[in-house]
Design a protein around this nucleic acid. Structure first.
Ligand SMILES: [Zn+2]
Ligand SMILES: [Zn+2]
Ligand SMILES: [Zn+2]
Ligand SMILES: [Zn+2]
Lengths: 149, 149
DNA sequence: ATGATATTGATAATCATTATCAATTAATTT
DNA sequence: AAATTAATTGATAATGATTATCAATATCAT
């Protein structure tokens, strides 16, 4: 928490940007948050700290947090963009049930390794990736089978 | 081509929907297309066949093609949704340069295999996945290094 | 051909995000 | 500590992509 604070502060200073109370508010709300949250979610959380906060500021600050390496956009389901913590957070990918929306986070080392091979093969300097597996969870698969019976 | 025609016709019939000239136009334009195209792209192509075609129809038909299994949405870069052929097309994933936008399609069997393991591990019935690797191509990496020199 | 129903294109509406801008605030310099 | 400079803010308008609405039209099983 304190660490994320100073990481963000350093980032801002390095870019000639200012640490403001609005940004502190958004950062605090983001740090307290969990999972994948949209700008709207974060605005709601931040307004509990400062009701006067504007929504544009949340969009702007979320982008800064992303540039600063504190946030990254999580799986791109339909709907608004969603962010999650990246600082001190282990990398993971997402498995989503297209029936009920349930989401599972996982990390598969071999996939990660294979991705590096791809980068090398095509002469790329890898910076990241997004992997999203989609399917039916056991419950939803069963339900579907019964319906089609 | 003829095959995609009849696949689509069958899909429509199975859903109680109608094969119309507008849908035939969109399908023809889609079949002739290559790569990843947006609704706007497809509208432009389809208007060359029938200038009176409405854009809403393209959005609607693209969704139908997707439901029918002829199209799927390709990598989700910023901007509008993009579709690509799926019928008789081998599966592939995408490698994108964040510098110049260059995109490479690849398929890595081990990644595919590992994904099936994940599905099994969590009791899912897999239906698909989207993997997007991001990085700098050799050219862009070199340019960046020189700038930061 | 007839009738029931799906479809069309035009248009308005929606949703998420960005741009604009005058007033305010933060960091620097005196 | 005040003045200076430039970035930031919140409100609001604008944008871009997509979806909803609806009266007129086209399709298809009968
Ligand atoms: Zn996650
Ligand atoms: Zn489920
Ligand atoms: Zn592709
Ligand atoms: Zn490049």
């Amino acid at each position: 928490m304190k660490e994320e604070q100073s990481l963000f502060a350093n980032y801002l200073k390095s870019k000639g940007l200012k640490m403001t109370s609005a940004r502190r508010t958004v950062l605090r709300a983001f740090i307290k948050s969990e999972g994948h949250l949209s700008a709207e979610d974060l605005l709601a959380a931040a307004k509990k700290i400062d009701p006067g906060l504007g929504q544009a500021t949340v969009f702007r600050t979320l982008k800064l947090l992303s540039d600063a390496g504190l946030a990254q956009d999580a799986c791109q389901e339909e709907g608004p963009r969603r962010y999650e913590h990246v600082y001190k957070q282990s990398h993971h990918d997402h498995l989503i049930c297209i029936g009920c929306g349930k989401m599972i986070e996982f990390c598969h080392p071999e996939i990660e390794k294979a991705q590096n091979e791809i980068f090398k093969k095509f002469g790329f300097r890898g910076t990241g990736h997004k992997l999203e597996l989609r399917g039916l969870c056991a419950d939803c698969a069963r339900k579907l089978d019964e319906e089609n019976k």
